[in-house]
Design a protein around this nucleic acid. Structure first.
Lengths: 138, 138
DNA sequence: TTGCGTGCAAAGGTTTTGCATGGCA
DNA sequence: TGCCATGCAAAACCTTTGCACGCAA
């Protein structure tokens, strides 16, 4: 909860640099832990969680949750697609994650804000439903 | 994964009856465990989880996840409001859960299906963002 | 030197699994 | 009688917390 974040440590620098080098890629704490371990400069899982929390609090990273029992995902937004943010859909049947860009959602977010006074965070939200293949199979 | 579900047990009957008696109410496995314990006819937590899984698989209950570290919620859809299903919004800041009914979302769901071939399940989806109070405070 | 950051170990909470027993058909 | 369902205990899983040490400023 408390944001101290006063020191510039090696871990902080390396973590943010790596996230920035993979814009638009969503990765879990475990992914990052494995990456740094394999890179020869291991970073504690606790540190990774704490730094990710801070970066999310600063608005630099986006965090979202796909499903229960599955780890949270973190992403450094892809500047290339800034105008058309990427959304996450998860098929309830086959578990596939679908990424899509859709201006309609932006319009819907504006409606939510204007009519329902709720400021939607589409990056964080995960849409559940059925993918084309699974919907056809029903 | 395997749906046997061949026997009609007391637990199965009682669980479904209770869920049906509270249409539109979302409850966790722990809620149900406490209810049956206090009602004098306790039911094992494992059984509750397994029966809930089966009921979700049969399409009788809806399951949704509010946030990481928080338990999953289960709900028996409220037939009274069938035409205007209730959606769940969670404020990322204060954690408040907001329920709202909005025809715009139905329109958006239709767009998703028509244009992106994704059959949205609005009951299951949790929208993240900021509530009015928290948005104003920023 | 100050006190935040780190990382190991352990706790926390929800959900799942193993296994012997009980109950439906 | 056959076999699924139950429920206790324990595991599995992700995440958070306690605490001593290290390192940035």
């Amino acid at each position: 909860m408390e944001e101290k974040n006063r020191y510039q440590t090696k871990q902080k620098t390396k973590l943010l640099e790596y996230m920035k080098s993979k814009p638009g890629c969503h990765m879990t704490a475990a992914d990052l832990y494995a990456y740094f371990r394999d890179s020869g400069e291991p970073m504690g899982l606790t540190t990774i969680y704490r730094q990710l929390d801070k970066l999310v609090g600063m608005g630099i990273l986006q965090k979202y949750i796909v499903d229960i029992g599955e780890p949270a995902c973190f992403v450094y937004p892809d500047e290339t697609h800034e105008h058309e943010t990427e959304y996450h859909c998860k098929c309830e049947k086959c578990g596939k994650i679908i990424h899509l860009q859709c201006p309609e959602l932006t319009a819907f977010a504006e409606h939510m804000n204007a009519e329902h006074h709720f400021l939607l965070d589409p990056q964080r939200t995960v849409f559940y439903g059925l993918c084309e293949t699974c919907a056809a199979g029903r």
